[in-house]
Simulated assay, not measured.
Amino acid sequence: MTSFALARSKLTARAVGVEGEILLESDAAFQQPRGLIDLAASSPFLPAYSVTGGYPGLRASLPRDYIRTIVEVLAGPISEAFSLGRIRPLKAEGAFSIVTLPDDALSAVQRAPHVDSTNSYQFAILHYLCGEAFGGTTFFRHRATGFETLSEDRLPRYKASRASEGAASGYVDTGAPWFEQTARVSAGFNRLVAYRSCVLHSGYVPASSVLSPDPRMGRLTANVFVTFAADD
């Protein structure tokens, strides 16, 4: 039976970019992370992408106990780091994810930074189950607008500006010339990072030649998205 107990590792918070968005990180998140790889290896993965975009690889269901544990443990640190006050989780979902698409198979949407939501109370919790050779996650500022996060109010201006711009030739690196890198978190086995889903970001994949659909060999992560509400 797989244990989903988190390790008593230090969580660090750092502000990045002009907007000072917080990245909450741990370099040793779970006590028995290799059990998660065993679970992933026995799970049925399906493509998560289409011709127009989506996650550039495969996904499988995460155990509900894992999602519940990570949300319960991180709710307090997230509240403190992001100055949210008393909060409660409204919705949480997640998946094992493996990047598999080669550079030349990516759609335009997959070759540019993105946000997962414009809701400032939704958070992405990313748990790396692979090594540093698989890249990491990069965060960006859109040069033309100066935006590092997107809201419903900002979307019209952002979309109008992006309509005349392009995308990278493969996976996003520095984002130039349309975006500027504000921070990068390197992949590292059992490393965890949490950030608002409205922050512009992209997976950093330095070489698609290292990608594999095998959970034991590929760019495996556990991804959780949790939406909080103020608990009055």
Rank of each mutant, 00 (worst) to 15 (best):
W178K: 03
Y49P: 13
L200Y: 00
G166D: 07
G203R: 07
I87H: 11
F140S: 14
R59D: 00
G17I: 13
Q181N: 11
Y66C: 05
F189D: 10
P215K: 05
R219E: 10
V99P: 06
I98R: 11
A105E: 14
Q122P: 07
L6S: 04
V224R: 09
T145N: 04
Q32R: 07
F4V: 14
A222V: 10
I22P: 00
S120R: 11
P77N: 00
A108R: 15
S61V: 13
R157W: 09
T69A: 08
S186I: 05
G218I: 12
A41Y: 06
S42Y: 05
W178M: 04
R219N: 11
T12C: 05
G166N: 04
Y55A: 06
Y158D: 05
L74T: 01
F30N: 02
E132Y: 13
L62F: 02
S42N: 11
G136N: 11
S186M: 07
Y128R: 06
P89R: 11
L58M: 14
T182A: 09
V172Q: 03
R64T: 09
P113I: 02
A163L: 10
G76I: 08
S43L: 10
P56W: 04
L220M: 02
G17H: 14
P77K: 03
P44K: 15
A112Y: 02
M1G: 12
L126C: 03
Q110S: 08
L220V: 04
S9F: 01
R162M: 15
G175H: 12
G94H: 01
